[in-house]
Amino acid sequence: MGRAISKIKHPFRDFNVESRAQKVISQPTPKPAPKHLKDALDLKRMKEAFPEVFEESLKKNETLDKHLKDVFVTRTDVPFQPQQPINPSRPLPQDKSQPEQFLFGHKEPDDDKIPLGKTTLRNTLKFISQHQKDPTKYDADFIAKEHKLPKEIVEKILLYYRVFEMYVPEYAEHTTKAKFAGPSVPKKFVLKDVGRKYLGPPKHKDNT
C-alpha cells in the first residue's frame, strides 16, 4: 500500500535513475551539498567577524606539512619469538583488576610540579570553600599568595564560583531520595518554594 502511494506521489523518482546517478558520481570534482541555513549564516558571520582567522585556515601550514612528509613506517622482518618460559622466581602479575579511579577523574600533578600561576581543581575547591566559611581570613590576597595565583583571577573566581549547601526536605527524607544543592549563599525563597505544608513548622530558623 505504502509503495503504491509512494509510486503515485513520486512518479518520476526512479526514472532513468542509474544514468542520472552515474552522471553525478562521474564528475571530476564533487559538488558539495548545500549547507543548512543556520550553518551557512554562522559561517558567513564568522568570516566577517574574524577574516584573518579564516584566511589563516585556508593557508597551508608548511611546518606541519613537512612533519607529515618526514614520517615513515618501515618494516623489518622480525622472527617469531616463542613465549618466554615461566620463571617461578619471577612470577608474572596475576592481578587483572582495574587500577583505582582518580578522585577528580584525572591524574593530578604533584604539588611541586604545578606551574606558577596555575592550580589544581582540588586546591580550587579547597580555597573556594575556605573563602565561603571565613571570607575575612581567606580573602583574595591571602589565597593569591598561598597558591601563587594572579590576584585579579582569584577575585573573579571567588565572585563567579560557589560551593553548594545541601537542602534536604524533611517530608521527603523517608520517602524519596530528593536532595537539593544550592549555591552556598542562602536565599530565603528556596525553602519556601519546596512547600511549607510539607515542611511543617520551621524548627531551625537558621536552616535556610
Binding site: F104, P109, K118, L121, T124, I157, Y160, Y161, F164, A181
Partner: peptide, 29 residues
C-alpha cells in the same frame, strides 16, 4: 567537572564571558 560540581554565579547567557570563565585559565592539567 568529571567528578565534582560548582555553582556558577551568573544571571544568564549575557554574563558568559572571559571573566566568568576565569577558573579555566588557571586549571592544571
Amino acid at each position: 567537572f568529571q567528578r565534582s560540581v560548582l555553582a556558577w554565579n551568573i544571571s544568564g547567557v549575557t554574563e558568559v564571558n572571559e571573566d566568568s570563565l576565569s577558573l579555566f585559565k588557571v586549571l592544571e592539567p
